[in-house]
Design a protein around this nucleic acid. Structure first.
Length: 526
DNA sequence: AAAAAAG
């Protein structure tokens, strides 16, 4: 058990903030302290129970060996990681009391930040970054880097995920777009890897697109500034021609296929990997990716590897899958599952037809162009088409999709970030993870295929607590699918016309219609 | 039934 002084210091320190939380504990009229005590005890208990239940469930599944196709490896079990906290049951009643108080305090913090956890013995959330030093002996360079990069207070996902990963537990986490998930998994990696100690790759981060992998690498390097960590992005050249037996690399960031290629053809050895992160994990579990992921997971054969899944959307299917695969994992949900960032103003615009979309777009540009603006379309063809169309106007516009050469993709992103491009047209290649500072507006020119696509697309704006705006065009054929998006909107506090909400619930289906050409006039048929 | 990921 760590110093109890932190515990009490914390409680004293936050008395004022308490008052706000206190209001949330409804129906407590009497003596404040007493009321607080009672309600929290109840809370702590229920959370414990939930943890026990889910661990039982896990065990049962493990026994029956619920096989999931394509996931042979995940089933190989980890040795149980030692529990750092809450489990030092020495028979002194005063220590028991302290532990109990700690549990209460943990739950107060979680409630305050909208953190929901399940799993047994979940480590306490952080109160501040400084606590990394007092509680986990974090080196000062890291805290210095945090400060220099402007990270003052940990975000909810960082508060909970960092201690859990530091304690060696596996994690699957769901937290809103732009809420600092990258730092949440990079920080514990940097803290746990003793730099230069071993000549082997000891952390692998997988991302669904190259641009995201590049961004994550950059972020990682910034956070490691001043320490001799070898952080590498799996580039085309590296995958093709590196001598991996000699390459110095502590942390490797890659897209799945390139990594698979390097393992197969270049004898890349991942047997000493200690941390494996699947960023945008629900995307990585999609058909086509999942086989590659399975291959990489197998290659990380160290039995004590700590796997973690991060995303802003966590469909039940993926969650079920994850539950069967991960061992003694802690599930962390920030806010409500599968919701959009609260800071984005979301609007729906009826555009009627393809022609109507173009008119609506021109109107937005003429009336209130507030660059930079990111525009999503459904397909590569349509991206090209819309690019041609907008290139005619006097606006700095560019386009990105996967059929462009890598360098051109990179440039498109860089120019957009640098403000050289005002309007970027994109396929869903740019829908996930990318952090465009100061992006004001996302326009869904084509209706998103699913609620999760919608959440990720609009999540390119409104990051790190800033405001954002999202406009979604829809046509007649999109109407049956409107409700999926409208639900997301209402859940994040945006107003939706009541006729949409009273529409019948559409059955879950991906919406990917054949659309008329962007420049098509009104339809002749019908 | 599109996009992404090796070339």
């Amino acid at each position: 058990m760590e110093d109890a002084s932190f515990l009490f210091a914390g409680i004293k320190f936050d008395r004022k903030k308490f008052a706000r939380d206190f209001e949330r504990f409804k129906g407590k009229k009497e003596n404040k302290d007493l009321g607080l005590e009672v309600s929290i005890v109840g809370n702590a208990k229920s959370e414990q129970e939930e943890g026990d239940k889910s661990s039982k469930k896990r065990k049962q599944k493990g026994v029956t060996g619920g096989s999931v196709e394509g996931f042979s490896v995940f089933k190989s079990s980890n040795p149980t990681s030692e529990i750092e906290q809450n489990d030092v049951a020495e028979d002194k009643s005063s220590e028991k009391k302290e532990i109990f108080r700690q549990l209460e305090w943990d739950n107060i913090l979680r409630k305050k930040y909208g953190i929901h956890v399940s799993g047994s013995h979940v480590p306490s959330p952080l109160q501040s970054f400084d606590e990394l030093k007092t509680r986990y002996k974090c080196k000062s360079y890291l805290l210095r880097n945090f400060a220099e990069l402007g990270y003052v207070e940990p975000t909810p996902i960082q508060r909970q995920a960092i201690p859990v990963l530091l304690s060696g537990r596996e994690v699957f986490a769901c937290a809103p777009t732009g809420s600092g998930k990258t730092l949440a998994f990079v920080c514990p990696i940097l803290m746990k890897l003793k730099h230069g100690l071993k000549n082997a790759i000891r952390a692998v981060v997988l991302c669904p697109t190259r641009e995201l992998a590049a961004q994550t690498t950059r972020e990682c390097k910034k956070l490691a500034e001043g320490k001799k960590f070898y952080i590498k992005l799996m580039t085309k050249e590296l995958a093709r021609s590196a001598d991996f037996s000699k390459l110095r690399c502590d942390i490797l960031v890659s897209t799945p296929l390139r990594l698979e290629f390097a393992i197969l053809k270049r004898k890349l050895d991942l047997s000493r990997v200690e941390f494996l992160v699947l960023d945008e994990s629900d995307k990585l579990f999609e058909l086509g990716f999942v086989e590659q992921i399975d291959f990489v997971v197998k290659a990380c054969s160290n039995p004590s590897v700590v796997r973690s899944l991060f995303s802003a959307t966590l469909p039940d299917t993926v969650e079920d899958l994850a539950r069967t695969l991960m061992h003694d994992a802690v599930r962390i949900i920030v806010g409500r599952k599968n919701t959009a960032s609260q800071t984005i103003k979301q609007k729906l615009v009826f555009a009627g037809s393809e022609e109507g979309k173009l008119i609506a777009l021109r109107q937005i540009f003429a009336e209130s162009l507030d660059p930079p603006v990111l525009i999503f379309v459904q397909s590569i063809e349509r991206a090209k088409e819309l690019y041609k169309e907008l290139a005619l106007i006097d606006i700095r516009v560019d386009v990105i999709h996967s059929h462009l050469p890598e360098a051109q993709r990179e440039n498109a992103i860089n120019d957009f970030r640098a403000g050289k491009t005002w309007v970027l047209i994109a396929t869903d290649v740019a829908a996930r993870g990318l952090d465009f500072k100061g992006l004001n507006c996302v326009i869904n020119y084509d209706f998103p295929e699913s609620a999760s696509t919608y959440i990720h697309r609009i999540g390119r704006s409104g990051r790190a607590g800033r405001e954002g705006e999202a406009i979604t065009f829809y046509t007649e054929e999109d109407i049956p699918y409107l409700r999926n998006i409208a639900n997301v909107m209402t859940q994040s506090g945006c107003e939706v016309p009541s006729w949409i909400m009273s529409m019948p619930k559409a059955k879950w289906k991906k919406h990917n219609p054949k659309r008329d050409s962007i420049t098509a006039g009104p339809r002749d048929d019908e």
